[in-house]
């Protein structure tokens, strides 16, 4: 079973919810796995008492031109959809950070003058904490492409475990890569106009991928009920509310997961999990 924790807006509490959900089950018989797929800013490890003991490099294949064979015919630049190659009169320029690694240029070069070599763009790191397996992807500073790192992180999914995925913010390709294949998606939001706007955008992605979903309303307690009205209208269940509370904010600031810092939160998170499991089996 795979549950992803997403939100359109950043900073609504995805990592707080993902880590607390995973840790609330940790003492149980349930075998748990947590994946941090927010590879531009992986933060879940800060809240977990573990050592990252394993590491795998993530590479994308990029073209390398054999100038001895190259006739500068321009075919590679013609077929490249990402402008990663420019053919000059006597030289071919390669822009590796634009390359998506599709392989068209090397396959279609009439002179077999292109070979592909691996270029590292990030790492996947792994470790364990008690019953829980943990993996995180990390995009190298200055690199653009998050999706290949997310894909490499998700290769470590163990289907026999209860898998939670911490998803990056937004609504574009990294989010799609992270949540696709989930059995359920939790959307974390806050009761502000930003929270509402970005929840509606995130719903667009979840609907496009046809994944059942529910909402966690974080920092609730202000008078603004627009988010709850929206959820009622759209028939999205609000599965948990976490109040705006300085004690919660302080625990978070020190890297203490909510269910450890304030143990009375363990039961609401276990109930959240039971609700999700029920909804998946009803679906």
């Amino acid at each position: 079973m795979i549950v992803s924790v997403a939100s359109g807006k950043g900073g609504t509490g995805k990592t707080l919810v993902a880590t607390s959900l995973a840790l609330s089950l940790d003492n149980n018989a349930e075998k748990v796995e947590l994946l941090d797929c927010d590879v531009e800013e992986p933060n879940a490890h800060i809240f977990l008492d573990l050592k990252l003991t394993k590491s795998w490099n993530v590479c994308v294949p990029v073209p390398e031109i054999n100038e001895l064979k190259c006739t500068h015919c321009g075919r590679c630049a013609d077929v490249c959809a990402f402008n990663a190659l420019a053919v000059l009169e006597k030289k071919v320029l390669v822009f590796p950070e634009l390359c998506h690694g599709c392989g068209a240029c090397s396959y279609l070069c009439p002179e077999t003058a292109i070979v592909e070599r691996d270029r590292e763009i990030g790492v996947v790191e792994g470790g364990a904490s008690g019953n829980m397996l943990f993996f995180q992807g990390k995009l190298t500073i200055g690199e653009m492409m998050a999706p290949p790192i997310i894909k490499a992180t998700k290769k470590h999914i163990d289907k026999d475990r209860m898998v939670f995925i911490d998803v990056p913010p937004g609504t574009s390709c990294p989010v799609v890569e992270a949540i696709s294949g989930s059995d359920f998606c939790l959307l974390v939001t806050e009761p502000t106009p930003f929270g509402l706007n970005d929840l509606a955008l995130a719903m667009g992605v979840v609907r496009e991928l046809q994944i059942p979903c529910g909402v966690v309303l974080n920092r609730s307690g202000t008078e603004n009920s627009a988010v709850e009205d929206y959820c009622r209208q759209e028939d999205i269940p609000v599965l948990l509310k976490i109040p705006l509370d300085m004690e919660i904010a302080r625990a978070y600031s020190r890297g203490i997961p909510l269910v450890r810092g304030i143990p009375s939160w363990r039961e609401p998170f276990r109930q959240l999990f039971r609700d999700i499991r029920q909804r998946i089996s009803d679906n």
Partner: peptide, 27 residues
């Protein structure tokens, strides 16, 4: 945008100054 990847680099390249807003949490 949040993050460090493609849209961030696109919004950053060639600007005169970046103001980085942070908060005092470990994250």
């Amino acid at each position: 945008p949040p993050g460090t990847g493609c849209p961030v680099i696109s919004s950053l390249s060639g600007v005169d100054l970046a103001l980085l807003v942070t908060e005092p949490t470990l994250s």
